[in-house]
Design a protein around this nucleic acid. Structure first.
Lengths: 153, 153
DNA sequence: CTCTAGTTGCAAGTGATTTGCATTTGCCTT
DNA sequence: AAGGCAAATGCAAATCACTTGCAACTAGAG
């Protein structure tokens, strides 16, 4: 009994993406479709193994090598970003949001996004002044939650 | 025939360091002494294997595991910094210089240091505004040399 | 529906770094 | 100068995060 499900915003975006990818010569297999939707739904920054776990709900038995291969392909296609934070396996996020940098809570591992135009501009200036142009950059703040004096632990 | 060699600035710094380390309970073995002076003399950002190569001039046969163990210890003691740039093994530098960030020439792999107080201040502000304090940070600009229009290739 | 080049899963391989363990060695104590 | 012992070393093996070779499978163009 096949149900007709309401199409969410994410479904629609994913569908557009698959079409675009197909046009770019990327075959949309079951495992890739699964990863695409898992990535589209992710609000965090999961690692490859976690993505495999989530994709397995749709495609049981999807192999880790396929996950890695697909992530590499999607990165090349500009669909996702790969982040290599300190001391952890690479983490991934879809790249449709506007550019931002990351704060990593060293206590919890939580990743918080932030953006600041002044910093971006300064970086460009610095590179420029030294005769370089920025290809890409990486700004990571490893932080700890601040407690106001008198706050509970 | 033992010669009395003139003591360089670096020798003196290294000597002070070994004393301080010994006081901190770190035994100064031949291999550690070698690594300390190699690190003190280094003006670049060498990787572990390169440090082993350089140390081997003083202590032939120094093992890579000892190099790694020593680097980890020196990092904990605050004597050196470990940098994990994209797509390369970790690189090390002594931490006596004032804080700076890095530009990596993506074409040559060359590492260029730079410092900018405005950026540092902005980072602190951002973290502060979100209720965090910075433990440490990482700012890396992956750059490409800019050619003025008309320059030769 | 066919065909074939692209994709998959599995097992084995890599590269960087870490670890177990028997042996050696700083260096504090005498 | 000598002794003792916890700490450090070298080697081999292990680990971690990926990557790759290969035979079997499958998108999706025609």
């Amino acid at each position: 009994m096949r149900e007709k499900k309401a199409m969410t915003q994410i479904d629609r975006r994913t569908e557009k993406l698959t079409t675009a990818l197909r046009r770019a010569g990327v075959r949309i297999t079951r495992q890739r479709a699964a990863l695409l939707s898992v990535l589209a739904e992710a609000e965090d920054h999961p690692e490859a193994i976690e993505l495999q776990r989530r994709a397995e709900a749709v495609v049981p038995g999807i192999s880790l090598s396929t996950v890695y291969r697909t992530l590499t392909e999607l990165e090349h296609q500009g669909v996702i970003l790969r982040h290599q934070f300190e001391g952890t396996p690479a983490r991934f996020e879809h790249s449709e949001a506007r550019h931002h940098d990351h704060m990593i809570d060293v206590e919890t591992g939580e990743v918080i996004e932030f953006a600041n135009d002044r910093i971006e501009a300064l970086q460009a200036e610095i590179a420029e002044a030294m005769g370089y142009e920025i290809v890409h950059h990486r700004l990571e703040l490893y932080v700890r939650r601040k407690r106001a004096p008198g706050d509970p632990d």
